[in-house]
Each structure stands twice: as C-alpha cells, then as structure tokens.
Lab assay of single mutants.
Amino acid sequence: NITYDSTPEDVKTWLQSKGFNPVTVNSLGVLNGAQLFSLNKDELRTVCPEGARVYSQIT
C-alpha cells in the first residue's frame, strides 16, 4: 500500500500492481504519496480516465 511518505517510484509500482492502465500509471506515477493523496476525485478524473477508480483505492 502507499502512504504519505511513498516515493513516486512506490506510487508507480502500486498503480501497476492494482492493474491500472499505462496512461494512468504514467500520469500519476510522477507524484509522491502526499501529492497523490492531496488530489480529490474530480482532479484525479481530470488527469486520467481511471481517476475515479484511483480515488476509491486511496480513500
């Protein structure tokens, strides 16, 4: 699982392990844990089509 202390590499690995598509992995894999957790559902949806699914995994 990812935490606020996760590195971008951790986030990328976590996204891949959850089966998100490469677009999602590449879009969000540049963020660290704190940055990812700071995004709300609408912001995640704006960044990638699977944003709502990512949001449900981190809340």
Rank of each mutant, 00 (worst) to 15 (best):
K41C: 08
L39Y: 13
F20W: 02
R45L: 09
L44Y: 08
T46C: 07
S17Y: 13
W14I: 03
K41I: 15
P49D: 10
D5R: 12
G19H: 11
V23T: 14
L36G: 02
S38E: 15
Y55R: 07
T24G: 02
L39C: 08
D42Y: 07
R53Q: 11
F37D: 03
K12S: 11
T46W: 06
F20S: 04
S27M: 13
E43Q: 10
D42K: 15
V25A: 06
V54G: 03
N26K: 13
R53G: 12
T46D: 15
W14V: 04
V30I: 10
C48P: 01
S17T: 09
A34Q: 12
D42L: 08
P49A: 12
S38L: 06
P8F: 01
S6D: 03
A34V: 08
T7I: 06
Y55H: 09
G51T: 04
Q16C: 12
T7C: 10
D5E: 15
Q35L: 03
T59V: 11
S6F: 01
R45A: 14
C48S: 09
S6H: 02
T7W: 03
R53E: 13
N1A: 09
T59G: 02
V11P: 01
K41F: 14
Q35C: 06
V54I: 07
C48N: 01
S27Q: 12
V54E: 05
E9S: 13
T13I: 09
L28A: 02
T59E: 05
L44D: 05
R53F: 06
F20C: 04
Q16W: 08
G33T: 00
T3S: 12
V54D: 03
C48T: 12
D42Q: 13
I2V: 03
V11Q: 02
D5F: 07
F37P: 04
E9Q: 12
P8D: 05
L39S: 08
T7H: 09
K41T: 05
S38W: 02
V54C: 05
G29L: 00
V11G: 02
T46L: 10
V30Q: 06
G29P: 00
I58Q: 04
R53I: 10
E43D: 10
G19K: 09
G19T: 03
W14L: 03
V11D: 00
S27V: 11
T3D: 14
V30G: 14
G33Y: 00
K41R: 12
L15Q: 00
L44V: 10
F37V: 07
T24Q: 01
Y4E: 11
T24Y: 00
N32K: 06
K12I: 05
K18E: 12
D10Q: 12
S27E: 14
W14H: 05
N32W: 05
Y55I: 09
I58A: 07
E50S: 02
T3F: 12
T7A: 10
K41E: 14
K18Q: 15
Y4F: 14
V23K: 12
S38K: 15
T59N: 11
K41D: 10
C48K: 03
S56M: 07
Q57T: 12
A52L: 13
N32E: 04
Q57F: 09
Y55W: 15
E50K: 02
T24P: 03
G51N: 02
E9K: 09
T3H: 08
D10Y: 04
D5A: 14
Q16T: 14
A52Q: 11
S56R: 14
E9D: 14
V30N: 15
K12H: 07
K18M: 14
L31N: 04
S38D: 09
Q57W: 10
K18Y: 09
T46R: 15
S6I: 00
I58G: 04
L31K: 06
T24S: 05
G29N: 01
V54S: 04
L36D: 04
L15H: 00
Q16G: 08
G29R: 05
R53M: 13
N26E: 12
